[in-house]
Nucleic acid binder design. Structure first.
Lengths: 190, 190
DNA sequence: CAATATATGGAGACTGGCTCCGCTTTGTCA
DNA sequence: TGACAAAGCGGAGCCAGTCTCCATATATTG
């Protein structure tokens, strides 16, 4: 959970220390209070002033993207693994569940991400490529295999998964309830 | 858009005037700025102090429920009409679209309602009976007609519809895009 | 036209976001 | 090693929003 922003001049040692500490504290705060956690509070808990936090992370999304770092890398790995899975239909089912579960890492994450996806300039938007790309490739394979209707769009599927994760969060659902919701939405009403 | 709260002692004339004005202004503000509109601002625009607004409506949800009054009555009427519709499957389809559309009356409404539904003491929760009951009865009829799997639960269907309305809002979707999303979720992937 | 219950409004406490700028620390180079 | 410039810091302070408290004002009633 460190080493990044190696582009441009490397940060001064103290600055790098602060950066890392902020990300670490932020990850914990988001886990506890959701994506709406107070940024001033995070700065305080990291032992820096608000100014420092805002210079490193000009927006909440920037901090969120940094805090999410590892989790998103994991998701990328999962996507690659499922792209190899022989059974394309099974791979898609698994991907959907996995993605929905990831979206519950922090409270409020589905909303943060949905908003970010609307704004290409958001750092969170670029960080989410593992998600969007993953869905696109795995869905494409499932279509080729004839396991999915040809008119299903990747963007719609992403929106659907996000919205289910959101609903599950709103209801305080268990993992089982989330799966039930996913099954309802993916197999339809009849 | 007036006359209510006739239970208990009737409000003093000036109080009733203020009450009505607040509801009217609130409906407009929510329409413009979403359910998160500033309450102090609503009070100000209605020509009353914040204290007055908060005495009539102790929570945002209380005000929201009042502002939604007419719309919810309409929805109740729609539910009754669709309960008569001979084709139970068609009735359900229509209900789903109608409900999702109603949830877009104000920005942020799906979230406000989803939260309220978790809290039986919320005034918004009771106001939403037309929605929940409507889904329950229309779904039951569709099941009887064999148009829907028997294991589909009304609560899940409600959550699903709400989440689709939420997703459509996040993406700034047109009505057509919302319908596409609904079709995807109700007819499944294959 | 009191007397009284009812209702008002706005000052102000509090929370969180975010900025600005004088001060401190670090890295470098002689 | 010492000194200087660049890099970084932090917290005071402003803004917006929520919500409360209570001295004051107004409607109603006999």
């Amino acid at each position: 959970m460190s080493a990044d922003a190696a582009t441009k001049r490397p940060l001064r040692a103290d600055a790098q220390r602060n950066y890392d500490k902020i990300v670490q504290v932020a990850a914990q705060a988001f886990a506890e209070k959701g994506t709406g956690a107070s940024l001033d509070d995070i700065a305080c808990r990291a032992g820096v002033g608000p100014g420092t936090l805002y210079r490193h992370f000009p927006t909440r999304d920037a901090l969120l993207a940094a805090a999410l770092g590892d989790a998103l890398a994991d998701l990328g790995a999962t996507a690659r693994r499922l792209s190899e899975e022989p059974d394309a239909a099974k791979a898609l089912d698994e991907w959907i569940v996995e993605l929905a579960r990831h979206l519950r890492t922090y409270g409020g994450l589905p909303e943060s991400i949905a908003t970010a996806l609307q704004d290409p300039s958001s750092p969170l938007c670029s960080s989410c490529q593992p998600m969007t790309k993953g869905t696109a490739t795995i869905l494409a394979r499932a279509k080729e295999a004839g396991a999915v209707r040809a008119d299903v769009q990747a963007s719609d599927l992403n929106a659907l998964i996000g919205s289910l994760a959101w609903a599950a969060e709103q209801r305080g659902d268990s993992d089982a309830a989330l799966r039930r919701l996913i099954k309802l939405a993916t197999s339809g009403l009849r």
